[in-house]
Every structure is written in structure tokens, then in C-alpha cells.
Simulated scan of single mutants.
Amino acid sequence: MVHATHYTAAEAAFVLREPVRSVKKALDSGPVRPTLLRRAGMSVRAIEWRDLFYLYAVRALRDELTPHARVEFYQALQRQPSERQDEIRFGRFRVTVGDLIEEVEQRTTDLAALSDRVTFRADGEPLVKNTSVEVYRIVALLDGGETAAQVLEDYPSLSLADIETARAYAEAYPKAGRPYPRLSAKRALRGAGLEQLDDI
């Protein structure tokens, strides 16, 4: 399977199903050595697939590997040829990793599939596919306390699957810059007692 070249901390967090801050802490503590990439005009830390796999594997094997063995495991991963290996050997250890590789590959496939479920406006803003609704607008509403049902009420062109896609996309690709309002225009009008303007 062909893997993406690099993964940001947010993308890695999506794959690992962990908070971004936990991934950043793991990158700070080593032995993974992230590189700096330019994305959307900003410098971000990113790791390769092997590093991502290491972070996943050491969590799955935390009870079996001592801190020193984790470093040896990482070094052994870096020495592995690029083709898939179902076993990693280091020191006196042999660790079977075929099932772990499959899990990470499935999760990275899920990450890649997110891009197929959005489209992009000319200014680069991601939209829910087949709609004109911004991904980050949906997530801002959810973060502001609206339920999925309320979002669907305000944006009837959306489906529940669209809302889940928006949530997942924003998790993997956090919005840079100014956030969207946490209240839809319709709900703001209703809150101000101006709901009759909805029909104008």
C-alpha cells in the first residue's frame, strides 16, 4: 500500500484516535523526529508513515516494551526496508506487527477518504460535497452547543453523514485563522425575536 509522505500532528491524532496535545507531547519526547513542512503558508511539524506506525504500535504494546525497548523498536523500524514486514526484530525481541500495520493502514485510508467527501471553494475553503456549506461552519455550530438535529434544521441540504464528515475533517485538518460564529444566522434571528425575517 502507498502511504502519504507526511502526517501533521492533527492528522496523526486522527489516525491514533488521541488528542492532538498527546501527539505533540509524544513528538516532543522522542524518539520520533518530526520535520518541518510548509502547508497553507505555515510551517508545521510532520512525521512519516513509519513514525506514525511507531506511535500506534508503542501504545498497543505499552505493557510489553520497556522505555529502552521502545527506542530499540523505533530504531529497528527505521532500518526496515520499505516493503511491508510482518515482524520487527531488535535485540532479543521479535514483535509480530502485521495486524497493527493493517489497523494503521485502514485508519490512514479513512483519513485519505475524508478529502473525497469535501470540495473546495476557489479560496480554498472546504465545503461539504454537493453543498455550499462550509465544513468549519458546521463544526463551529456543534462547538457552540447546537445538536446535529439543530444543524440539520438550519441546513436541510445536509445529512447526518455530512455532519460526521465535517466533524472528522475538522479534527484532522483544524481551521487556521478566524473561527466561524458558533450560532447560525437563523438561530441568531430567532434568539433576537426576529424570526419573521426568515421568510423575507
Rank of each mutant, 00 (worst) to 15 (best):
V135H: 03
K25I: 14
D162V: 04
L160I: 13
Q106K: 08
A112E: 15
V58E: 14
Y169S: 01
Q75L: 05
Y74A: 05
G144P: 01
V97I: 10
I138Q: 04
S43F: 09
P126T: 08
T96L: 11
I101W: 05
L189P: 02
R190K: 14
K175R: 12
L114I: 09
Y7E: 09
G144I: 02
A60G: 02
P179G: 01
P34C: 13
Y136C: 01
A60D: 03
A161S: 14
P67K: 04
P126E: 11
A185Q: 11
E171Q: 12
S184H: 05
Y74N: 05
E153I: 15
P19G: 05
A4C: 09
A192P: 06
R178W: 04
R62G: 05
H6I: 10
D28W: 10
S29C: 04
P34M: 15
E146H: 12
R94M: 09
S115D: 14
T108R: 04
T165E: 03
P174S: 11
V15S: 00
P19K: 15
A57E: 01
D199A: 15
P156H: 10
D123R: 04
A185S: 14
A13V: 01
G124P: 06
E64R: 11
F14Q: 11
G191L: 15
G191T: 14
G144H: 01
R178E: 09
H68P: 01
V151F: 08
R17C: 02
G177D: 08
A112K: 14
A112P: 08
R70A: 01
L189K: 11
V71M: 01
V58L: 08
Q85R: 09
D143G: 00
F73Q: 05
E11L: 07
D99F: 00
R21V: 11
D51S: 04
A166G: 00
R45G: 11
Y7N: 03
V139R: 02
